[in-house]
Design a protein around this nucleic acid. Structure first.
Lengths: 170, 170
DNA sequence: AAATTAAGTTAGATAGTCCAAACAAAATGA
DNA sequence: TCATTTTGTTTGGACTATCTAACTTAATTT
């Protein structure tokens, strides 16, 4: 397999937005893309031609825009990265909605599939391992607020873990 | 305070590299910067002029390059992000050295100070909370390898946590 | 000190991303 | 259907980040 030349952040964002718009309104129009990306309509046309050349979208002037199979595949991968990262940022690091969204949007271009898969496993692990889960995250937040580590209630906390785990097995 | 216009990824990388080279050899030369960034010598000159205009480096043609206070401050912030992210990627997600390094290098431009501070707290929390720590990460790896969750040994594992915690208090 | 090599700069080219404004096509609706 | 509005395209310009090749300055070696 000849390795695909990696795509620019701009191209990835275009694909991601097109996928989203396609889902909402069956088909993507230049105007929606421009709005979503916060750029001028005029800037979209050239970019679309570029995507067309790269065989990532089906495009003809004045016509609708759809993703090719290749384009859709990439768009979905990027969207998945976005979702996973946002999940980590908001559910684990507890960044507020807006910050998590914006940060995920920038980070999604910086991590590859092996990395994101590992992060998915990590998220699952956090919320499934009896040693962690939601209350562990909760303690993390308290820890952040109170400034420094307070491990006084650990005995009790560990007992809770255990009894919770017993219950879940029964 | 007038908000600083945010810097491009390129500028951030330049500052980071200059800081590193400065540390290794007291002073940065265009050639080292070009090598580290994997670009041609000719591309460096223009960028340096730009950094000079932004008051981020002290630069005069044919002379040495040093960071200004402002430049150094930013370079250190980027480097810190890099370090923290790499730490997370390698110590927690267990990506191999090289991948962690490369990924951190791209992600460092995508996360801001509040975000990175939260990640620092999270790392500390993972390794200090009695419920987690190194053996928890170890179990994560095994979990990744074996494919699906295996929570058979959890009772034992939780007991270990507890006794370890008792010891650490004495 | 002169010759050679290494490092730095300049100039011109290209590609990508964007804008604003003028223009063209398509859709709407009276 | 015709006029109006909306949407899409074109054009020309700007800026960033790069390259290569030619050239200049500085450093090293003999």
């Amino acid at each position: 397999m000849p390795k695909e030349p990696q795509l620019s952040e701009t191209v990835e964002n275009f694909l991601e937005v097109i996928l989203e718009v396609e889902h909402r309104n069956k088909v993507a129009r230049a105007k929606d893309i421009a709005e979503k990306l916060g750029i001028q309509r005029g800037s979209v046309t050239g970019a679309l031609k570029n995507l067309e050349e790269k065989k990532l979208i089906n495009y003809e002037p004045y016509s609708f825009i759809t993703l090719t199979a290749k384009g859709a595949q990439i768009a979905k991968a990027i969207t998945r990265r976005h979702t996973v990262l946002k999940d980590f940022l908001s559910r684990v690091l507890q960044l507020d909605e807006e910050t998590a969204e914006a940060t995920a949007c920038r980070m999604e271009h910086a991590i590859d599939e092996p990395g994101i898969n590992r992060l998915v496993s990590f998220l699952e692990y956090i919320f499934e391992c009896p040693r962690t889960g939601n209350d562990w995250i909760q303690s993390f937040i308290e820890n952040c607020r109170s400034g420094k580590g307070n491990w006084d209630k650990c005995d009790h906390c560990l007992d809770d873990c255990k009894s919770r785990h017993r219950k879940s097995k029964s």
